[in-house]
Amino acid sequence: MRRFSWFNATSLTLGFAFLYLPMVILVIYSFNASKLVTVWAGFSTRWYGELIRNEEFLDAAWVTLKVAFFSSTLATILGTMAAYVLVRAGRFSGRTLFSGMIYAPLVMPEVITGLSLLLLFIGIGLDRGVLTIVLAHTTFSMCYVSVVVSSRLTSFDRSLEEAALDLGCSPFDAFRLVTLPIIAPAVISGWLLAFTLSLDDLVIASFTTGPSATTLPIKIFSAVRLGVSPEINALSTIMIGIVTVGVITASLISKRAAVAQARDEQAAARTT
């Protein structure tokens, strides 16, 4: 057993307090009865009620979910293809440009991505709205998906695909029957990542949207600019709650799978 270290315990406690205290405070104050967000006036769910009755927020939430769903799905398809090309297609002309275009959006400031896409949409005369946000979000989140999927593909034993070919699969069948089922967890987490990126995005959506489509982050941003509001606290609490439940569930599932796998492998080693 490792020796207990006061230094480590302190740094972990303070570190996680720093990470979580602001969010905990936010959650607590969302149940504050007072309109004044810094004065505690008793427990109440009043702001949740007002939030639900706020048509504008509900509309924005609906737009955001639609955008996130379509853009993450498209991004997952394109990103997985791109990852496959990066890892497996070998050399082709323009490969350097291709990998550059995959990695650049990851480090590109959002203001530049947003600005450039807006100028494109204006240039080609595309009406700004849900479609343009979906296009914009797909473009940058496909790069994240392809990074997640390609890191899985790199560690993927290439001989599995060769074995499939050797046993008579066409390259497409080999992908469908062998590669895809094995990289599925990475593809799914790529999708989830793309979905949250789209849900969170303020800057690119602000640039690429038109008057017809307002997403939740845009709504929150314009509300928050004027100061702290209890309704936003309530909304934040709901979003934090969803993410927390989702992440904890996912990690429990993967932990259970890992434990089962370890147990099976031990049992297998004993039967030798």
Partner: peptide, 20 residues
């Protein structure tokens, strides 16, 4: 002639058993 059309099969060093 691609690998999937050859009268040849291979046993891989890593065995390459499909884990799923």
């Amino acid at each position: 002639i691609p690998p999937n059309k050859r009268p040849v099969n291979m046993m891989f060093q890593s065995y390459a058993l499909f884990p799923h």
